[in-house]
Design a protein around this nucleic acid. Sequence first.
DNA 1: GATCATATTGAGAATGATTCTTGTTCGCAA
DNA 2: TTGCGAACAAGAATCATTCTCAATATGATC
Lengths: 164, 164
Amino acid sequence: MSTPLHRHTHSDEVATGEELHDLVAKRLTERGQRYTSGRRRLIEALVEAEHPMTLPAIVAGSPDVAPSSAYRNLDLLESAGVIRRISSGGDHAHFELAEPLLHHHHHLICVDCGTIVDIHLDDELEDLVDERLSKAAVDAGFTPISHSLDVHGRCPTCTKAASV
Amino acid sequence: MSTPLHRHTHSDEVATGEELHDLVAKRLTERGQRYTSGRRRLIEALVEAEHPMTLPAIVAGSPDVAPSSAYRNLDLLESAGVIRRISSGGDHAHFELAEPLLHHHHHLICVDCGTIVDIHLDDELEDLVDERLSKAAVDAGFTPISHSLDVHGRCPTCTKAASV
DNA sequence: GATCATATTGAGAATGATTCTTGTTCGCAA
DNA sequence: TTGCGAACAAGAATCATTCTCAATATGATC
Ligand SMILES: [Mn+2]
Ligand SMILES: [Mn+2]
Ligand SMILES: [Zn+2]
Ligand SMILES: [Zn+2]
């Protein structure tokens, strides 16, 4: 009972560069879908940003992606398990590369400006949390799939602004 | 450094019954706002449900609260720190009583139907997580305020439906 | 390389949840 | 009571997201 939600045996097997795009292409091909240039531009935006981005931010940075296509393709890439949607309560959802493409991690979320940055916890704590959460889920009859763990607070910029 | 985000010295000091409404009234009065019958109906819906609810669900259960008022007052009660908004990615946000009115806890979120139920972790783990998260936040220049920890999975009903 | 079948695109329309507006009503204090 | 600002609620307005559909790109097959 209560099987771990994640394995923390990763060391550095995170895809980078063209390798990453090959992986995305494979995922899509398996589903009979194409890794078009528009979809690649979305992935590239997320790779380059190095932190979760909103759709408006992605579109603003890549004026050649039509909003309607961005909505459609971010949904599609999420369904394919290539990216992950983070609904942190702000006006817009954020997107980041999904777990096989990026190490398992968590987030610091600014309650004022909505900025999100990644944080990593050590494997011991991850395993402990994982085990307890899985147990609690199974006890409630749930089938656990993943977990999310966020710190809500104020980013450096907003901390300064708030202390004036 | 890294002061805990929460104190786990609570035992049974959670407000119940009329006590709870008195506390809500006080919070609003302090801000020059009134605890009207419409606002009380919202709080009562959340107390009775015993799990986070969406606005449509609240309105459906209390046909005498106008949607426009529900939106306005849920926002207001959130600003007053009386309720908490949970943005779990589904179509609608969920609402629950905020922490002084309810023990600190976390959530199981069904990825299929959006249902949310509460789970409690023991204080030792809470303190450990708290400490590590606060440290990570401070290291990144963030001022931590709170944390959230959710298990995403399938509820009993959706687990059955998925295994057909 | 030409052809074909289909997946994909993007402009604009449609949708629908949330927010705003405004005349009316309520709550509280004098 | 009376008076005044807070709060209400119906409907209009907003605007992010989804949908529609004719045009285009893609990749397989010949
Ligand atoms: Mn984790
Ligand atoms: Mn906690
Ligand atoms: Zn900020
Ligand atoms: Zn479910």
